[in-house]
Simulated assay, not measured.
Amino acid sequence: MNMMSTMEAPSLDGFAQPDIAAPVTTAMSPGTYLRKRREAADRTLEDVARTLRPKWGVAQINWMVSHLAELENDEAYVTGVVVRNIAATFPMDANVYNALVAIRCGVELDEPQLCRECACSAHDACIDALGHGCSWVEGDPTLCTNCREPEPVEGANAIEGRARAA
């Protein structure tokens, strides 16, 4: 499916301006998806810009940062190789992003299942310190196990805390 047919003509090297004023869905916006995945990877906009264009100078990096911010604010969308290049800089799924753009532009698609906190999906799960992928919290299909509040653990730390309080 060619996403460009639902948007204005591309501008600025693969960036396209949305042609709708308000979202037509309650799905997570493409920009929110990008921001949440970038933040989950502990990357700044400048980190992403420098990864995309390592030889660029300060002014050019600042220009790229401003365009990445436009994407995260849903002021523009990207397609094709541009979104795939961004996807190579932190864990995200270009197909999920493309689906969110299509949904935002009124295409009837099933909304991808995303964590409401970090926007991970079955295609780009969070990886914990042991290298294990997250899963969905039982009873809450909008929250991954990596983002849920940790349950209190009874053990050495709890006993130690009680001893200090006494």
Rank of each mutant, 00 (worst) to 15 (best):
N2E: 08
M4I: 03
M4V: 06
S5E: 10
S5F: 00
L12C: 04
I20N: 11
A21V: 12
A22K: 15
T26V: 10
A27S: 09
M28L: 01
M28K: 03
T32Q: 10
T32C: 02
L34Y: 08
L34W: 06
L34A: 06
L34S: 07
R35L: 02
R35Q: 09
K36F: 02
R37C: 03
R38P: 04
R38F: 06
E39M: 06
A40H: 08
D42C: 03
T44N: 04
V48L: 10
T51N: 09
T51H: 09
L52Q: 12
K55L: 12
W56C: 07
W56N: 11
Q60D: 15
I61E: 10
I61H: 12
N62Y: 05
N62M: 13
N62C: 04
W63I: 14
W63M: 15
V65F: 10
L68S: 09
E70Q: 15
E72F: 06
D74R: 05
D74P: 09
Y77W: 14
V81R: 03
V82D: 01
V83M: 05
V83L: 06
V83N: 09
N85K: 10
A88L: 02
F90A: 01
F90S: 01
M92G: 02
M92E: 04
D93Y: 00
A94F: 01
A94T: 07
N95S: 10
N95C: 02
Y97I: 03
L100V: 03
I103W: 11
R104W: 12
R104D: 13
C105D: 05
C105T: 07
E108D: 07
E108N: 08
E108K: 15
E111Q: 05
Q113D: 09
Q113P: 00
L114S: 04
C118A: 02
C120W: 13
A122C: 00
A122P: 00
A122I: 02
D124L: 06
A125R: 15
I127G: 03
D128C: 05
L130I: 00
C134F: 00
G139R: 10
D140Y: 00
D140E: 13
D140C: 03
D140H: 02
P141L: 08
T142W: 00
N146R: 13
C147D: 06
R148H: 10
E151W: 01
V153K: 12
G155I: 08
N157T: 14
N157Y: 13
G161H: 11
A163L: 15
A166H: 12
